[in-house]
Every structure is written in C-alpha cells, then in structure tokens.
Simulated scan of single mutants.
Amino acid sequence: MAATPRTSSLTAPDAQPMGLRERKKLKTRVAIRTATYRLIQEQGYEATTIEQIAEAAEVSPSTVLRYFATKEDIVLTDAYDPLMVTALRSRPLDEPPLESLRLMMREALTSFVTAEEEELRRRTRLMVEIPAIRARMTETMSDTAKLLSQVLADRTGRSADDLRIRIFTAAVLGALREVTLYWGEHGQEGDLITMIDEALDTLETGLRL
C-alpha cells in the first residue's frame, strides 16, 4: 500500500501518540519520499540517484539507505502491513477468510485513498512504467503474504506454511496487484475499490463462461 498513513479507521485502537523520536523519523521519511517524487518528475526515474535524493531531502545518502534499502523501496514502502494484520485479527473468527480479507483490504484502501490519493496515483504510474518497481513490488508482497498467512493460520488451526494457506493468500494479493496495475495501465479510470471487489468476486465464483 504507500507513505506512512495519517489517522484512519485502520489505526490500532490502543495506538499511542508518537514521541519526539518517532516524529523526527516520520519527518525524515516524508522528506525523502517527497524529494524522490519531485526528482523523478523533473528528470525521470533512472536519472534520479540516492545521492541526489539525499541532497534534496537534506540528509546523508547513508540516512536514505537506513530508511529505505533500495530506491524502489522509497516508492513502495509503507506502514500499512502491521495495521492490516491488526485489522484482520479483529475480524470475527467465524467469518469466511475471503470475506475477512475483502473487508480488511477495502478498509485499508479507503483509508489510503482518503489520506494519500495523489501518492497512490504517482506510485501506480511508476509501477506501470518502471520494471524494477514492479519486480520489487512482487518481493514486498511476498513479505505481506507471510504476515497475513500467519493470521489465517492461527484462525484455521493450520501452519502458516500450509500449501492451501499460501495459495489462498497469494491469490488474494495477486488479485490486488493485478487490479492496481490494470487501473494504472488504463489511465487510473474507474473506482479502484470496486474493481478489487470485483476481482475477489472472480476468485470466489470463478470465471463464468
């Protein structure tokens, strides 16, 4: 999903206000991301270097790499995974897993669109245009899948490495990935949340010939 979210319904109910150190980290992270998007817009993705990003954000290159392991991560990294895990754990235990994931994803995306719509649009354009970002997105989704698989494993009494758990989680996140790319490839037209609902309907019912 993208930048550290602002207050939303996905925020954990027991979340505490950030301390000075956390606020400084957030400020640095936002500065790095803002500088990155500005430079990419001005001169293109490939021409933008970590050194240039550091200079524009008024930090050192080592600071940039401490916050983001790669340039692609500056575009892709966000703070939504832990919140999605919390939201998924809060769903009723007798709720069908696909419905739990559907509602959790709908809530997360609604929060994201409300707080960070322009960031979502910029990120999606780069996903479509830059192969390295698409490849890195696949890697980061694998990490997200492991987190969500553990929650589903706990709910179903299976192992997180159970093949059916892995296939199910990968299929749902794969649907999210393909809808996002499709939306970006088609001028970001249409309602993204509705499109994801339709994709999950297809997973649930299969293709109807």
Rank of each mutant, 00 (worst) to 15 (best):
S9C: 07
E72C: 04
R125K: 14
A12G: 07
P13D: 06
A15C: 01
I32G: 01
A145K: 02
L176N: 05
L192G: 02
Y37G: 02
T140G: 08
S142C: 05
E178F: 10
R91W: 00
E189C: 14
L207I: 08
S159G: 13
L147V: 07
D162E: 12
D154M: 10
R121G: 01
D143L: 15
I40V: 15
G184R: 04
V151E: 00
W183V: 03
L103G: 13
A35K: 00
L101A: 03
I74Q: 02
A56W: 02
E116N: 11
R6I: 08
R155F: 09
L26T: 13
L147Y: 09
A79E: 13
E107L: 14
R122E: 11
S111A: 15
M18Q: 15
P97Y: 11
L93T: 09
E22L: 07
R106Y: 05
I133T: 03
D197C: 12
R155P: 05
R166Q: 09
A12F: 14
K25G: 05
T77S: 12
G19P: 01
R102Q: 01
Y67K: 06
F68L: 01
P96K: 08
L10D: 02
H186E: 11
P92Y: 13
L147I: 03
E58Y: 09
A15S: 11
Y80R: 10
A153R: 04
L83G: 00
M195C: 04
Q43K: 13
L10H: 09
L88C: 12
E116Q: 15
E118G: 04
A54H: 06
Y37I: 05
R102W: 03
L20I: 09
Y37W: 13
T49N: 12
F68T: 00
E118H: 14
S60R: 14
V172R: 01
T114F: 11
L209P: 13
G187A: 09
T7C: 08
L26C: 04
S60K: 12
P97D: 12
R6G: 14
L209R: 13
E118L: 11
T49P: 03
T49A: 03
A87W: 00
L93G: 11
E51V: 09
V179F: 10
L20G: 09
S60F: 05
Q52S: 13
A153F: 00
Q150A: 14
T28M: 07
D201R: 09
G174K: 07
Q16S: 07
A171Y: 01
L209Y: 12
A15L: 02
W183S: 01
A57P: 02
T144G: 06
A108Y: 00
F68M: 04
S8D: 06
D161I: 04
L39E: 01
A175L: 02
L83Y: 07
V113L: 14
T110W: 02
E129H: 11
E95N: 08
Q16G: 00
A3I: 13
F168L: 10
I165M: 06
R38Q: 13
L176K: 09
S90D: 13
S149I: 06
A2W: 06
E99W: 04
A145E: 05
I196A: 07
T156M: 10
S149V: 01
G206T: 02
